[in-house]
Amino acid sequence: MPSDSRPCVAVVLPGTGSDADFVARAFTEPLTCRGVRTAAVEPDPRRVVGSYVDALDAAAAQHGRILVGGVSIGAAVALQWAGSHPDRVAGVLAALPAWTGTAADAPAAASARFTAARLRADGLEQVTAEMIASSPPWLGRELAKSWRSQWPHLPAALDEASEYHAPGEGDLERITVPVGIAAATDDAVHPLEVAREWSERLPHAGLVTVTLDEIGADPAILGYASLDALDSVLHTT
């Protein structure tokens, strides 16, 4: 990132059911290498999107132009906020975008709705055990920790996320801030096609791909990939 455009703070937002610890590990190291401090937001499961917007507003009021970013729904909220506040944003780091516009039958939204219903019916311990058994080990460990921290409000948080209206096709085309997108080539919940659509419709966007195994080995790969994608845009504008 060119030094004359470097903000001092990046605000990063977790994905559905995730927590500040994961996004901090995803973004802190790569941002620190660029001289940028990371502010990872802990979601309020009673009002996930509202808590994210409050954190973005507060950071911009305190620091001026900031970097914003996140994972999954965190990426969508960050991008939408950036589109509404382009003069307060130096760039967006969007990791694993989940859908465009209305969630409808997007895999991430369907998974959130299903999990919320199961949690209400069968409780945290049983559903967590089943999730761990059916997930890659690293993902099971991450979600088991964050789910417990958000209980008993986790089902409501999952429902809220599943109903979130991300930037639509027209919205993407009108967002002029530079955006770096990181996507996994083998993630069925966050399809690569969504990331490609974002990168094609956003006027100033780059895309770098990784794999789920790489994320599991070191979440910072998401931060490095999204920063590399953002650099590719900044160096051509």
Rank of each mutant, 00 (worst) to 15 (best):
P2W: 01
P2C: 00
D4Q: 09
S5I: 10
P7K: 10
V9I: 14
V9F: 05
A10L: 03
L13N: 00
T16K: 05
D19F: 01
A20E: 14
F22T: 04
R25P: 02
A26M: 11
F27G: 02
L31C: 07
R34P: 03
G35N: 08
G35L: 11
V36R: 00
R37M: 07
E42Q: 14
D44V: 00
R46K: 13
V49D: 10
V49S: 05
S51D: 10
S51L: 08
A55C: 11
L56F: 14
A58P: 00
A60M: 08
R65L: 09
V68T: 09
V68W: 02
G69Q: 08
G70P: 01
V71M: 13
I73F: 09
A76H: 15
L79V: 12
G83L: 05
G83H: 09
G83V: 00
P86D: 12
R88H: 14
R88L: 10
V89I: 15
V89E: 02
V89D: 02
A90R: 13
L93V: 06
L93K: 02
A94Y: 01
W99V: 04
G101Y: 02
A110P: 13
S111F: 14
F114S: 13
T115Q: 04
R118C: 11
A121I: 08
E125A: 12
V127I: 14
T128N: 04
A129D: 11
A129V: 09
E130A: 11
M131G: 07
A133T: 08
A133K: 04
P136S: 15
L139V: 06
L139F: 15
L139D: 01
G140Y: 07
G140S: 03
G140A: 06
R141K: 13
W147P: 02
R148C: 08
R148A: 13
S149A: 15
Q150E: 13
Q150Y: 08
W151Y: 11
A156S: 11
A156W: 06
A157V: 09
L158F: 11
E160T: 10
A161M: 06
H165F: 10
A166T: 06
A166L: 03
E169W: 10
G170K: 09
D171N: 13
L172E: 02
R174Q: 15
I175F: 05
V177Y: 04
P178L: 04
P178D: 02
V179P: 00
A184R: 01
D186T: 10
V189H: 04
V194T: 10
R196K: 12
S199M: 06
E200I: 03
R201P: 15
R201Y: 08
L202N: 00
V208G: 02
T209F: 08
V210H: 03
V210F: 07
G216P: 04
D218A: 15
G223W: 02
A225R: 01
A225I: 05
L227Q: 04
D231E: 12
T237H: 08
